[in-house]
Design a protein around this nucleic acid. Sequence first.
DNA 1: CATGAATGAGTGTTCATTCAT
DNA 2: AATGAATGAACACTCATTCAT
Lengths: 202, 202, 202, 202
Amino acid sequence: MKRKGPKYEKIIDAAVNVIAKHGYHQSQVSKIAKEAGVADGTIYLYFKNKEDLLVSVFNEKMGTFIEKTENELKSNDSAIEKLKTLVEMHFKQLTADFELSIVTQLELRQTNRQLRAKIGEVLKRYLNLIDSILKDGMDEGVFVRDMDYRLARQMIFGTIDETATNWVMNDHRYDLPALAGPVHQMLVNGLAIRSAQTETHS
Amino acid sequence: MKRKGPKYEKIIDAAVNVIAKHGYHQSQVSKIAKEAGVADGTIYLYFKNKEDLLVSVFNEKMGTFIEKTENELKSNDSAIEKLKTLVEMHFKQLTADFELSIVTQLELRQTNRQLRAKIGEVLKRYLNLIDSILKDGMDEGVFVRDMDYRLARQMIFGTIDETATNWVMNDHRYDLPALAGPVHQMLVNGLAIRSAQTETHS
Amino acid sequence: MKRKGPKYEKIIDAAVNVIAKHGYHQSQVSKIAKEAGVADGTIYLYFKNKEDLLVSVFNEKMGTFIEKTENELKSNDSAIEKLKTLVEMHFKQLTADFELSIVTQLELRQTNRQLRAKIGEVLKRYLNLIDSILKDGMDEGVFVRDMDYRLARQMIFGTIDETATNWVMNDHRYDLPALAGPVHQMLVNGLAIRSAQTETHS
Amino acid sequence: MKRKGPKYEKIIDAAVNVIAKHGYHQSQVSKIAKEAGVADGTIYLYFKNKEDLLVSVFNEKMGTFIEKTENELKSNDSAIEKLKTLVEMHFKQLTADFELSIVTQLELRQTNRQLRAKIGEVLKRYLNLIDSILKDGMDEGVFVRDMDYRLARQMIFGTIDETATNWVMNDHRYDLPALAGPVHQMLVNGLAIRSAQTETHS
DNA sequence: CATGAATGAGTGTTCATTCAT
DNA sequence: AATGAATGAACACTCATTCAT
């Protein structure tokens, strides 16, 4: 099982192209092979099976996605600024690759539980990034101290993801990175007016 | 095409059971028919085809889900309290029907774009509910006035949905309704400490 | 098994209509029942099964067809004139009922061997008519004496049938009865010029 | 879509065998594949679908049938002799392949209109052969000059086809090629005695 | 390394017929 | 006599994967 080489990457990229163009359920192995310019059987020299190929697509692309985000977060910025950077990077990177945004936001979600569990594994690195920002913020004393950090992480990721998915489903018709500011604002300050007496007691 | 009667409901319920137990891709029409105690062909007296059955499952179950939520929101409560009610109803109703929660949070998302488009139609009613709460809040002067209400809606739905999905993927191991308070708190007040000078400028 | 009554005939006629309009393979029992204005189950009070219905359609319609031809042949005409009458009656009757012509020439031929065997039984009466004309002609001394009468019958029926089928397949676009004369002429005198020395030796 | 190779021919031949043995409506793709010694899916490497396979069966077999007849007609014989050759070739070739005769005379006629339309296309080549013989005969002055050649063609084909069909339906019990002479004789000279005053006036 | 022909398991849907009312 | 809801057997076609070359 070769996991690198020029054909490995050609197949990965062909998979993204084919899935973005034809949709997940119309992305047969033979179609991906043709797009990559290799024989059907060659796919199986580089990937254990189709599921392995799809997970690898997500791995490779999300790996780069996460690394770039990690690099941007290495600054000495405050947690609040880091969160802003995270949202901006997320939206910018999706905007930089329309095909990839279709594949990750729409197509790869149509997979069975097993495949999505493996995709979830990859995502953990990204969720850890969010967790560390949250921890920083709590240590800095700017984020609510007794907050359930898992819930906070789910709010951040759920909001970013839902926003991105809506953008893709609306055919990328508007400027997603321009929403990073407002989204960040809402995550940090919530819906309620700051000056108001809006504290709720759960 | 009969759209009601005891068999109609038996088939809908059988579909939920089978999908929850075996997963979307292992839910053959014959399996659903057997679970419902009817012949395969009987399915087609009540539904145009398999897709129509699956959309109907979502329609029927989400219809009830949304109606119950709508009823709870008819009070004279403030927007902030209504939002709390919405989150609570969402989590309570999913908790009341484990099987349904598996079907809506995990299995029915594995469908093709066409089916998900139809599911999206049903969801619009729910998103409208959220929008009216947001509008109330802005009218009341408790929610940020110049907020992008679509983003706010995406934050609210994205957060609730992500929280619910995590709960289902963790095999319903913890008390979801207990999270309604903290989730609501975060949505309203954000991550930042109230007293702190946390205003961001986008 | 009631074999008569107003519904019996309504069903027979409905079958002809439906088959002519939708084609043999799109003529479900339920469609015929609807056209006849009766319940599906009622069909089975009058006919043993679908095959029995189709055979009955052919029986009833061809029965009338044959009887009318028989009546016209009761004259004291010569065999040659009787043959002319047979061809004329054949073409006239098909022209008088376009729907029936479609059903007998095109649609009912798409049936399995078993059904066509039963249809063949009905046709025997018609073939006997031809045989008696041939016998008359041989007795009169106008038809070749040592001719194989089965072959002659097959030539007559094959020619008439092929001519009629072509007419139906050409959407009844031309005047079929007008072809009775030329067809008769060819059957009686053959392709070769009379005066010529055209005798062949087999 | 491979249209040649040993498996292509094996599948064609298997289809003829299966259809002849089990009848058109009992000739499932899986049965044909088994008879051909290939997997079901292999059929679809060589044929677009089942209809394409059946049309191809007719094409291949009738193609050879027609070519052989065309070759025999390249002589300098008179039109009357050519007609004799045509009838003889027709009967001889059917006799040479009992299975094929069952398939073409009985089974392939049970198909829907669409398929028969495609079969009709192939038959046109054969009908053209008949037309050219008729034209030759009229040019030679041996066939009636003002004859409707389409009717003449229909008489010839209708007679041959009806004769062949009867032979197949009688389980090939008699010697079909032996009938070529009498059939030809009847087609050329008609039913009436040559010496008699049998001219009819239409 | 690479090929691509061959494999064969798996499933939504139709419709003739029945039978309780 | 008449109904029509219910039945359930039957089948063409796809596509991930293999393996001889």
